[in-house]
Nucleic acid binder design. Structure first.
Lengths: 409, 409
DNA sequence: CCACTTCTTTCAAGGCGTGAACTAAGTACA
DNA sequence: TGTACTTAGTTCACGCCTTGAAAGAAGTGG
């Protein structure tokens, strides 16, 4: 039960409040006229709705702009300090917690180094809870002013309806993360795949912004993707993640840490890069720095180190094939490459990568594709996670009590 | 402009009409009470809405059923003869036109053998138009009673906003099919990818019915797929097609007719099957029957012909890998295999196919997957195509004039 | 024949968006 | 300085919508 309940005349008002709020959130401060045009409602209704929102304190007047020989537009905006949201990035080597206001400005940050694959889920939950407490204390924001906590995790997230996480690569098998968190905090929760959330962040605020159909690829230790179809810059278009890193690009090829063979991740993931480099150099690596540092340093010397250049070329070849596949399947107008490793590859070999993708894609869908490097940096996943409670809040028309449960935006 | 315009109180009524109609269409005749429960509206409103629809003639009373010691439910249904729809399947070896009533019963059928790859698009348009005219004449249905024509084609369909078809494999390069058809008929049109429409048909009426997340694979001359996510049996859940057949499963592998290398279609498509068989037999084939007949006969003798069995085993291996990829990406609860070739493979080697898929998929998403053979037969694509105008009609709340333009359901 | 159950209809009440008229607040120009 | 014009926002009567409660309809069981 529970389709979109716009069947009642009450829900209609909520819908129009939501439309106004989404407009202000995504396009920034603006005139009532713009809101009316975007939502397709009459000026009278906009006045009425915006009046409501201002009375509630969610929206505030913020100046005015002249408008070519007529009454100037008075500009309204969402009060950035009306409420706050938390975003958590559960990464393979650290847990990052960030606090944002409604303008998505960072109000607090706390990073806990960790090694996900060696930790019990309960320990991770404690780290998250501790991080949340630390950030709130440090920023002086009251719990009551927090709309909710978004959490990005690796692996597959199943909503049934509480989020259960399957991340074979870090040894998480059906971890009921949302239930565990519920026991330790009263804040509304929203859990989803990290790659999907990175995509959401890039789509709302980064390199994927404004494109109708976009594919965002996250390349780091693992490999993930998220897809947005036929939703301009507009509200919650539709995304779809999945374990794309574990699709076969070479049937019966290299063994992958997931147990199967020929997965894309087994060719382009950070682990694969390091391992391949060791093979080319004829021996295991020296120091015991963490993987991210090793791979970053390795890629920094492609000019002088032939083995490094070879490894990078192979990554480009396979990643290009993978991107070509995505283009064939989704025919996006833009592909954005993010993640700490992806951004490095993009910086070094964007042209070659586009060429490799072109060889593997059909002419037609590939013709209009732009291949871009992600805009957002290391905290893109946390930002994306924070968009989850924000999205619920806006879609509910700005009612804080409506922000419960765990269905995705 | 033009988001979902439920902003007005008028649109609200249309929405509720649409809800009632979808309920009756997908779940069959039923009581007003069921409609109310499904749509989440009060009994009074249901009476009101259904009364409207009956006055219009779209809905009619059809008996009643007892209900445990109370007033019996009176049953209402959509009048199957209120209007009709046409579905066209533009296949690689024939153009099939079918006429359906609103209960999706076939009222007329016309098949034109053809060879798509050797025909100019304008000739195909003529065949479609001729087929439509023939079916209407033969069944005695007036043009005014036809809601529209759905057309399924191979390749990528771009809506911009009129449908343009890119089917590299049959030599269609940016064919403005919808515009061409518009010049030759006044009927409302809807063009989309054939594999997507086959999926739609299986999802509404066939083996994919009732599943929340389903992947439907079409294997014939080419290879396509369609995906339905998080929409139970309910309305227009969301599908997504694309040239899945031309994703690389072996980077730099077999050359494919699309020009790239290692495409899945180059291993499991009908052409690949025939070619591989010829290689194993050490020479080209004898007769010059069409591909479908040759491959069908070839697969009929896997018991006695080792070369045939080998070919089939290879198809299973690669198709299994492809299906494993789909499972990893979409984590469906069900995978349905259709298309003339797909149904044969499913009938012969379902168990082996599931095994091959399992080897290539992650444990978690694969655990609960059912792999099924498609229910619907040779006219599944035409049926799926016919759902397009039906879907528009229902979503508009049963207003015939609203059935124009070409955006997908 | 009466009590009870279940489904459907009727209707007053309250809420909502529209469209038109109106007010507000500027610019252009004489 | 003032008049005409332009654009933005507000007010309000009107019609439409859904709800919720109450009434009606059509059965069953005793």
């Amino acid at each position: 039960m529970g389709s979109r309940q716009t069947s009642t005349v009450h829900g209609l008002r909520r819908e129009n409040r939501a439309r106004a709020l989404w407009d202000l959130y995504l396009h920034g401060p603006g005139s009532r006229q713009r809101i009316g045009a975007g939502a397709g409602v009459s000026p009278g209704t906009v006045s009425n709705v915006v009046g409501d929102l201002m009375e509630q304190g969610l929206v505030q007047e913020s100046g005015s702009v002249p408008s070519g020989g007529g009454r100037p537009s008075s500009i309204v905006q969402i009060d950035p300090g009306y409420a706050f949201v938390l975003g958590v990035d559960v990464g393979e080597s650290s847990v990052l917690v960030e606090l944002f206001d409604l303008a998505m400005q960072v109000r607090g940050r706390h990073r806990i180094p960790t090694e996900l694959a060696r930790l019990a889920p309960a320990e991770v939950v404690e780290q998250i809870v501790a991080g949340v407490a630390a950030v709130l204390a440090q920023s002086g924001v009251a719990t009551d002013d927090v709309l909710g906590v978004g959490v990005g995790v690796p692996g597959l997230v199943e909503h049934s309806p509480l989020a259960v996480v399957h991340a074979q690569t870090v040894g998480w098998d059906a971890v009921p993360l949302e239930a565990l968190l519920h026991e330790r905090t009263a804040l509304p929760l929203a859990v989803d795949n990290g790659a999907k959330l990175l995509g959401q962040a890039e789509h709302w605020f980064g390199a994927a912004r404004g494109a109708a159909d976009v594919v965002v690829v996250l390349l780091g230790h693992g490999l993930g993707t998220s897809i947005f179809t036929r939703g301009s810059g507009a509200r919650a278009p539709m995304s779809s993640p999945g374990e794309w890193g574990h699709t076969a690009v070479v049937v019966d090829g290299q063994p992958c840490r997931c147990g199967a063979r020929g997965c894309l991740e087994a060719y382009v993931g950070a682990g694969a890069v390091a391992a391949r480099y060791d093979v080319l150099r004829g021996g295991p690596a020296e120091g015991s720095e963490d993987l991210e540092t090793r791979v970053t340093e390795l890629l920094a010397r492609t000019d002088s180190d032939p083995a490094s250049a070879t490894v990078l070329a192979e990554v480009v070849r396979y990643l290009g094939a993978g991107i070509g596949n995505l283009v064939n399947v989704y025919s996006p107008s833009r592909v954005v490459l993010g993640g700490w490793l992806g951004r490095q590859v993009a910086a070094l070999r964007m042209t070659e990568l586009a060429g490799a993708a072109a060889r593997n894609a059909l002419r037609t869908p590939f013709a209009d594709v732009e291949l871009l490097r992600a805009d957002l940096g290391a905290d893109a996943v946390a930002l994306g996670a924070a968009t989850l409670p924000v999205g619920r809040f806006l879609s509910s028309g700005g009612q804080r009590d409506a922000v419960l449960g765990s269905r995705p935006v």
